[in-house]
Design a protein around this nucleic acid. Structure first.
Lengths: 184, 184
DNA sequence: CTGAACATGTAACACGTTACATGATTGA
DNA sequence: TCAATCATGTAACGTGTTACATGTTCAG
């Protein structure tokens, strides 16, 4: 149920339309909480019905501008620090590792090496983002953006190191097996 | 659509009933791909209908033992190395960081410190698991289990370091603000 | 003989994705 | 004028969660 809180969070920075929020979801929140148009319009309707947001103006082309209410702000703050974060631990990439013994060592090594490459790529992307947004905006807002970015940088670095280490372990086993075969 | 592959992966190690698989999901796969009873029985039925698994024996209490078919094995191997892992990036914990400017610095720091503590706790749990399963089972199977465990150890360590670093940054801002206030 | 563990199944609901459907405004 | 962009909404479908429902077998 966090789409609701993502929407409230974005609206806490100022009024916006569904369309506006959608852009934000696609750009800045895509790496953390992707949302589709369909989902967002539905949620905004529900939030309005429950009084957590309110329509403040209707612009051209049927545009509806939403504003967060006091009640919505209270709900956002409550969620932020009082509700236990539910670590959604489903991990496709790691699930595969468990079954990697079903393919030969060469293919398994290839899989791990690709993971390492992907991590390097993502890390570079994030470094690019950091370069492009240096020191703009106010204290707190900027700091928390930085902190989130740093999380990405550290995690992709750790993922790269791990994948490289794992690929090397598989390669070592391959060598060992090859030695065995030659000795027979 | 990975529950299907998780089930195929478990069955690739040998025949088992839905009930058996459920235990495995609850114990060894819980951290990577949780599944409920309801979901699993449904999926096994579908897999059987599509010929990726087959019922090999019916035991007491209506127990149905499933075995993976050649077709199922082929699908599993295909998925393992040929299908791009879809990185499910939804991250509740990080989403909150983006909106942390909505609570005071003290509460924000508390949130980050709690994240660090949680990471330490998880890291310790995993260290416990590693201790308890040292050097059992065969080469490849053991190795991939190790590799997955190592991922957990490295990620929880990185998460702890990051959360501690972030909490320190927020504390520094608090100090700065307090100095300001005193100077006025 | 009784409670725990074994064993499977269905129904209702929540959430997310994709696709369809529609129309208004603006700038080149 | 016409294409791009703005702007919202709904329907169908797939997946995941919780709860309900039922019955068997084994060990003490």
């Amino acid at each position: 149920m966090s789409l609701r809180h993502a929407a409230l969070g974005l609206l806490s920075a100022g009024p916006a339309s569904g369309y506006d929020l959608l852009k934000t979801f696609e750009i800045s929140l895509a790496e953390v909480w992707p949302a589709t148009q369909s989902q967002l319009y539905g949620e905004l309707g529900r939030l309005a019905k429950e009084g957590l947001v309110r329509v403040v103006s209707e612009g051209p082309r049927g545009r509806k501008e939403y504003e967060i209410t006091e009640e919505g702000l209270a709900e956002l703050r409550h969620w932020l620090v009082e509700v236990a974060p539910n670590l959604s631990r489903r991990n496709d990439m790691l699930l595969r590792v468990f079954f990697l013994d079903q393919v030969d060592a060469d293919a398994a090594r290839g899989y791990l090496e690709r993971l390492a490459q992907q991590a390097v790529h993502e890390h570079d992307q994030l470094r690019g983002v950091r370069e492009s947004v240096i020191s703009q905006g106010d204290d707190a807002l900027r700091m928390y953006g930085d902190i989130a970015l740093e999380w990405g940088l550290r995690l992709t670095a750790a993922q790269r190191d791990w994948a490289e280490w794992a690929a090397a372990r598989v390669a070592a086993l391959e060598q060992q097996k090859a030695g065995h075969a030659a000795a027979e």
